[in-house]
Design a protein around this nucleic acid. Sequence first.
DNA 1: GCCAACGTTGGC
DNA 2: GCCAACGTTGGC
Length: 156
Amino acid sequence: MAKQYWLMKSEPNVYSIEDLKRNKTSPWEGVRNYQARNFMRDEMKLGDKVLFYHSNAKPSGVAGIAEVCKTSYPDFFAWDKKSKYFDKKTDPENPTWFMVDVKFVSQFKEVISLQELKEDPALSGMTVTKKGSRLSVHPVDKKHFDHVVALGKRKS
DNA sequence: GCCAACGTTGGC
DNA sequence: GCCAACGTTGGC
């Protein structure tokens, strides 16, 4: 199957692109939304590219690029009572939540802000620019992905 | 199965 | 911190 492209949101005060750069790879734990889980569990493949998006940030926007380096496995934080992602309804024998691992690819010199994404005609229709778009993991068109990467390079 | 109440996300 | 948008829960 052809390589796919994704956008994954993280609040930088929780986990930022700098954290991923330092750690090289990271599990993408804590997704507690079924649609987002389905994308990770069923569709993400090794080598798929990811736009790393900072939400609730100043400014919010795409901060860099990551790559899927481990396909889905159960999000064990869901049955760790000490984790803030603990979910008492999930059973380790029959996990509800899944995650993938991602690895650092590059960090843009500057975040490409949501406003820039919205104002760029080449990115019209991109999911993250739509009103009320809350899904923290979702697919991105290759043409949109490539354009954002080009914007990121121009700023580097 | 409807839908009101409640909780969360996330831009601003 | 506000609040609009959206998801989930639970009474009936």
